[in-house]
């Protein structure tokens, strides 16, 4: 009796995994669960006045949810939790500054890139550092578990890369001269740069271009296709440009131009 029950349980389990389609699930639930950061200005952070999570990543996922015709449910994630939360299905879509890397692409699927930004190195203006070569023998901070950390370690072989748990800590290390450079995606680093009252400068070279995509669990082609279609629609309707301008445009402190539009994954794979 027990064995029969187990077999039935096993069968129903294998069926549900074989036939489940996350897109259909989302539509039937009427809710799209998005993973975003809770501490990264201006992509996903707590607004001190309303204390709710706001940011560019939040707006992008809200626009996708709207396009799919479902409600949005936000969950904050840490840097390291992004991929496990997708794999285990706790989160449907990851819009948490998730950059494409070949290693990550083995674990999850990536949509087209909705944001393309260079990873730059921020230095103190009076340090006399002008290029990557000047950083030889010096220390560079980066966020633990981020692509900037991995690429900085690969590209700045003569520098020592020191990682910290979050952006504020990485920047504090630079501000207090504990490190001489900070490797971070420019869109995030520009916030620190602008608040340094002119004491910092970006190096001209970029460590690499980061393509931030929507992360989707592997084996969900319908969901991935729907996300890509949504992104194309949002690009052609100008919605993505509006979202960019809201967070990075001339109207606020960043004033960062949007250098590249939505880029299909095939271009950077």
């Amino acid at each position: 009796m027990k064995r029969v029950a187990l077999v039935i349980l096993g069968l129903s389990f294998s069926c549900s995994t074989a036939w489940s389609d996350q897109l259909a699930d989302i539509k039937s639930r009427g809710v799209l669960t998005c993973g975003v950061f809770g501490d990264l200005v201006p992509l996903g952070y707590q607004d001190p006045k309303t204390r709710s999570i706001v940011g560019l990543d939040v707006d992008v996922c809200a626009a996708i949810a709207e396009d799919l015709g479902v409600k949005l449910d936000l969950k904050t994630v840490s840097v390291d939790a992004r991929i496990p939360s997708l794999e285990t299905g706790r989160i449907d879509l990851m819009t948490a500054s998730l950059a494409y890397t070949p290693v990550r692409a083995k674990q999850i699927d990536f949509s087209s890139a909705y944001m393309n930004v260079p990873v730059s190195v921020l230095v103190k203006k009076d340090s006399g550092i002008k290029s990557f070569a000047d950083l030889a023998g010096k220390k560079v901070s980066a966020n633990r578990g981020s692509t900037s950390e991995v690429f900085a370690r690969q590209k700045l072989t003569n520098s020592e890369v020191v990682s910290f748990d979050n952006g504020p800590a990485s920047y504090l290390a630079l501000a207090q001269d504990k490190v001489q450079g900070m490797a971070m995606v420019k869109s995030a680093a520009v916030g620190f740069h602008n608040r340094s009252s002119g004491q910092t400068a970006f190096l001209d070279e970029a460590l690499f271009w980061e393509h931030d995509c929507v992360g989707v669990k592997k084996g969900e082609p319908a969901l991935l296709a729907a996300v890509n279609t949504s992104l194309d629609k949002l690009e052609s309707s100008g919605r993505l440009q509006t979202i960019w301008d809201r967070w990075y445009g001339q109207s606020n402190e960043y004033q960062l131009p949007r250098e590249k539009k939505v880029t299909p994954a095939s271009e950077f794979e």
């Binding site: 390291d80 991929i83 290693v103 990550r104 083995k106 674990q107 901070s141 633990r144 578990g145 950390e149 991995v150 370690r153 020191v162 990682s163 910290f164 748990d165 800590a169 290390a173």
Partner: peptide, 20 residues
Amino acid sequence: LAIGVKELMYVARQLDGETY
């Protein structure tokens, strides 16, 4: 590890981040 000292936990996190 929270202040960037490269002790055991730091290298564990670094390895996990680089290789998964």
